[in-house]
């Protein structure tokens, strides 16, 4: 079972193996000789196929922030236990999630209100633009998780919808 890293929404499979000098990175059909020496304070030297690259890094849980060759990229290690656990069927559709961080401008529904697919639930504002959060399916508004004026992060659950009879 390979390791998974996510970068800009795409999952990359890889495996690292030991070799006499350092490691080998197996990436698809590519095999690269790699190694890393820590220099302390979020600095290190990556060796990749013989070339040395100074690396600045910061690790925040499973998120790895990297600065190499003047460029910054953010990769996320996907723990195999959670990566392979399916979200319960339909559960994703029962919640309206925030497509980006923002602030609630106004809520258009009340808990207990019946909604159909596409009903406007909430107006959010992010990056100076308003967008409407719509119901992903038919159901009843169970809970509104943020009040008007409150801030939320990316992927936060904004509104929970239950299916009638469930």
């Amino acid at each position: 079972m390979n390791h998974l890293f996510e970068h800009e929404g795409v999952d990359y499979q890889l495996w690292l193996s030991r070799c006499q000098q350092g490691y080998r990175l197996h990436l698809g059909n590519e095999v690269l000789a790699v190694d890393f020496s820590h220099q302390g304070d979020g600095r290190g030297l990556l060796t990749i196929t013989g070339a040395s690259e100074p690396v600045r890094f910061a690790i925040d849980g499973d998120i790895i922030h990297l600065h190499i060759r003047g460029r910054t990229r953010i990769l996320r290690y996907r723990d195999p236990l959670s990566a392979h656990a399916l979200v319960k069927k339909d559960a994703g559709h029962l919640m309206a999630r925030a497509p980006m961080p923002g602030v609630v401008v106004k809520t258009s529904v009340m808990p207990g209100e019946a909604v159909s697919t596409g009903t406007a639930l909430m107006v959010i504002e992010s990056m100076k633009l308003e967008s409407v959060i719509r119901s992903p399916q038919e159901g009843v508004v169970d809970r509104i998780h943020f009040n008007e004026g409150e801030c939320f992060e990316h992927d936060a659950v904004l509104v929970t919808i239950t299916q009638e009879g469930h």
């Binding site: 390791h3 890293f5 970068h7 990359y12 890889l14 690292l16 490691y23 990175l25 990436l27 590519e30 690269l32 790699v34 190694d35 890393f36 290190g44 990556l46 990749i48 690259e53 690396v55 890094f57 690790i59 790895i64 990297l66 190499i68 060759r69 460029r71 990229r73 990769l75 290690y77 723990d79």
Partner: peptide, 17 residues
């Protein structure tokens, strides 16, 4: 260059190394 970043990420991720 993504492989360079993936290499660094792999080597910096405890469960991976």
């Amino acid at each position: 260059d993504l492989s360079t970043f993936l290499a660094a990420a792999a080597l910096l991720t405890r469960p991976v190394h």
